[in-house]
Write a protein that binds this DNA or RNA. Structure first.
Lengths: 334, 334
DNA sequence: TTGAAAGCGCTAACAT
DNA sequence: ATGTTAGCGCTTTCAA
């Protein structure tokens, strides 16, 4: 049977059981005001004994702080949002904050519904995250009565946003390849209408020169495979390194190279982007790749919303957080 | 600048602006009691105009229902919990329920902390999910003042649990292979100390006989690869079909088979388990696999917690929800 | 049909 | 050092 009518203990119960008034009980429990150490201890013991737990709703009603925040995400908790959510959680939980997770599934109606519900619940802040940086929130998010922070999404000018530094991440990858003695580096990446793909490609060209070749496609393994077939099918000079826009693409690339009996990294080095462990660890050879440090990004966003919810100001703007390079086997020196 | 002091409108504001008392305003807004249609409309219009939204905290305090539930999960939102959470969300959102997501990261201290916080917040119910069915909640979950439902986890006898029907799923896979004309079927799966692995293996043997071979290992792609090398390295009759305990294993199996120049499915058919799209779709050939219908499982759990939170009884016990078979290219008739 | 008043559980002035 | 009281925003008797 599911237990039901275990009536919850209130501060009244504590006060009565300890033989004090409710305000004394409150003071004793919270360490506010002046309370005789003895009474304080007694009250606390009693509270513990009868299993008293303060009603967060009542507290929130009074303090106007619910100690909860909402995360609104456009996907059904994909692999990008998840690490971020974990990071957010990590910094907030210790502060006694809870997290409402709201998946909008890219449905504006749902997004609006969630937003309204969050506001009704008096959340102390909202974090908006997306699966692509250039995806705008499907609802009006500007003049809200609560602070908002964007993670993996760029909010308006005067807002606080955290995004990975794609340019720096791409540079990291390309420079690593250069240091490994590679000179003919090709970039195989996702669709050109993704901001992240454009930024990475631009950064890659920044290092290698405007004529460095970029192959835009989609984010799939299949595209990686196809790109290699196309490149190695034709004539002309072949690359000695491939910088891929995602780990999935890299996986396709590696598979295709192996089908061509090219050995990695001795013939061709490969670097990926994402550090999606389940992919990067399992390629053969395992994949050197750029990590966007999404959990750290989540942590920062959590910290920011925490500060804002305490009404501390933080300067608006877009923070680009550094990526790191995870070196595995797919990219060695020549 | 982040907006702050947009004071929230209260029902007082509505009442004043509409020239009625707050109780009339309340009645008009909620359609309770007797209210003159005209006043009702006026009040509603005014509320809309000034942007009034009821304070969920105040409502909850009074009604003793917070219209929120918590999901406690042991992993950092892995790929198993996620689809479930999506299913839960799907059925609850339409009912105006919000979801607190609590990741315990397998830390009992965190689990306890989350549980207490949820209770303090007066959640209407708690869903406990895990990454493996035989993982018990790290805290006392029996005599709670709120209903609890287990999803992808088996609670105590008298509780409500939803798990995938692994036995049926395995049977689905094996029978599909038999129908495709395969007779020497091998089962390569995860660690034997996983309940799910044991159940699937038992069911596989139920169909094929006690002497059918099971290779326990781990859930990795690498293990799939290794298993194939081991089997095809030795002498003796080779299997003409492999039933894998996970899609990752299947991926390793397929890769290894291709390395041996065996063609799939003509030489060997492969069936996976999980329908983890990003893996199953990208294997070459694409993978026929068992889908545990996790989203549906989440939906059921959500529905259950909804009923329980309305104090409707539902019979305790473990519900095994049917798996489905997703047929792709890796398993054709001989 | 509408309004006044009590109270959900808690905190914080203020009075004792 | 402790108790009394008001009130957070809302719903809900009960009177008018």
């Amino acid at each position: 049977m599911v237990e039901k009518d275990i009536r919850r203990r209130t501060i009244h119960d504590v006060a009565r059981a300890a033989g004090v008034s409710i305000s004394t009980a409150s003071n004793a429990l919270n360490g506010t005001g002046r309370t005789n150490p003895e009474t304080r201890e007694r009250v606390r013991r009693v509270a513990e004994d009868i299993g008293f737990r303060p009603n967060a709703l009542a507290r929130g009603l009074l303090s106007k702080r619910s100690h909860a925040i909402g995360i609104i995400t456009n996907d059904t908790y994909g692999r990008l949002t998840l690490p971020m959510a974990a990071g957010v959680s990590e910094v907030l939980v210790e502060e006694g904050m809870s997290v409402f997770l709201c998946a909008t599934d890219n449905d504006p109606r749902l997004a609006k519904l969630h937003l309204e519900t969050l506001l009704d619940r008096q959340v102390d802040g909202i974090i908006f995250t997306a699966t692509r940086m250039d995806l705008k929130p499907p609802m009006e998010l500007s003049r809200l009565p609560v602070p908002i922070v964007y993670a993996f999404a760029e909010g308006p000018e005067d807002s606080v946003s955290f995004v990975p530094d794609d340019a720096q991440g791409a540079r990291l990858a390309v420079e690593h390849l250069l240091q490994a003695g590679r000179s003919r580096i090709l970039h195989v990446t996702g669709p050109e209408d993704y901001l992240a793909a454009r930024i990475r490609a631009a950064s890659y060209r920044d290092v290698l020169g405007e004529r460095a070749e970029v192959m835009f496609g989609d984010w799939s393994e299949e595209w990686g495979h196809e790109a290699i077939q196309r490149v190695f099918g034709g004539a002309g000079l072949k690359p000695d390194a491939i910088f891929c826009g995602s780990d999935e693409i890299a996986r396709g690339v590696i598979d295709a190279l192996r089908d061509l009996d090219l050995s990695i990294p001795s013939d061709i080095a490969v670097v990926g982007f994402d550090n999606w462990e389940v992919v990067a660890r399992q390629t053969r050879p395992s994949l050197t790749t750029v990590d966007m440090e999404l959990k750290e990004l989540g942590r920062q966003a959590g910290l920011a919303i925490l500060q804002l919810s305490k009404r501390e100001d933080i300067p608006p703007g877009i923070r680009r957080l550094p990526c790191s390079l995870v070196t595995r086997k797919s990219c060695g020196a020549i």
